[in-house]
């Protein structure tokens, strides 16, 4: 017994180092697996508060470019709205008569990150704004990511620039779908894999979300095909997708809640159990 205690005292530095190193390894491994419970995230009171107060100042510097973006989006929506109202002029249908399955929230990115291999963003909306895990996040130009963790006032977003991110996406002109991943290299490009060889591809084709995952509605723009190659087995394409979004400059985003998510998940679970 005496010897054990002596051993511990003699090697206390090494043992302490080993313990703390193992703890940090544990955190690291957790952060590499999707949606594991992790304690170390920036959606807490301290980091969220710091980022929020800094963002209050720094957002002034990008006011001009963000205004242009919003005006651009307004222009699109206006043209959509006026064109649609002219067509359906005679048979006016109140859109509130239908229950839309998607609900939208706005939020601001208070911390952006794109230089790591696993990037998380922080937004200024959280549980008190009824934001929950697995809501989709898009900007006016295209897809951004999925809500990962929320605290009371803040949330983190698993960016599409994250090597663990998997989002279902498809070609706009046909219905061939695949998985959107990222190889960790350039923040301008993501990779679309598992598109079957039979799909007719061309450079410049548009990629949209497929609406299969119950997170994003169908048709959220992702990007255009920059180049593509067949994988090693020569059955599927690996496509480099140039994103519509400039992921290095995002501020105003929309959060999408699918009200039917629970129903869809239950249905899928039932099907799996049978």
């Amino acid at each position: 017994m005496q010897q054990i205690i002596n051993f511990i005292i003699r090697n206390k530095n090494f043992l302490l180092f080993l313990l703390l190193f193992c703890v940090s390894l544990l955190f690291t491994i957790q952060s590499h697996s999707y949606h594991k419970s992790k304690f170390i995230n920036s959606a807490n009171f301290l980091t969220g508060g710091v980022y929020n107060s800094i963002n209050n100042i720094s957002s002034y510097f990008s006011l001009k470019s963000q205004n242009t973006l919003l005006a651009e989006e307004n222009k699109q929506l206006k043209s959509l709205w006026f064109n649609a109202s002219q067509k359906t002029d005679s048979t006016y249908v109140d859109s509130t008569a239908f229950q839309s399955p998607y609900r939208f929230y706005t939020a601001n990115i208070i911390k952006n990150s794109y230089a790591l291999t696993d990037n998380y963003l922080t937004i200024n909306k959280g549980r008190k704004d009824s934001i929950k895990q697995d809501f989709g996040v898009i900007s006016s130009k295209g897809i951004i990511g999925i809500i990962d963790k929320t605290s009371r006032g803040y949330g983190t977003v698993l960016s599409i620039l994250n090597t663990t991110s998997r989002i279902s996406a498809q070609l706009k002109k046909t219905n061939h779908f695949g998985t959107l991943t990222w190889n960790g290299k350039s923040p301008e490009f993501t990779q679309l894999v598992d598109i079957p060889k039979i799909a007719p591809l061309q450079k410049g084709d548009t990629i949209i979300t497929s609406g299969r995952s119950s997170i994003f509605p169908k048709g959220v723009p992702v990007g255009v095909i920059a180049d593509f190659v067949l994988d090693q087995a020569e059955n599927f394409y690996e496509i480099n997708v140039k994103l519509f979004n400039d992921m290095t400059n995002i501020e105003h985003v929309y959060i999408i809640e699918n009200i039917d998510t629970e129903e869809i998940l239950n249905l899928n679970n039932n099907n799996n159990n049978d």
């Binding site: 390894l25 955190f27 690291t28 957790q30 952060s31 170390i40 807490n44 983190t156």
Partner: peptide, 12 residues
């Protein structure tokens, strides 16, 4: 790590 959402890499 807390600020950067990087798990435990800086701590390690």
């Amino acid at each position: 790590d807390l600020f950067l959402d990087t798990g435990g890499i800086h701590a390690g």
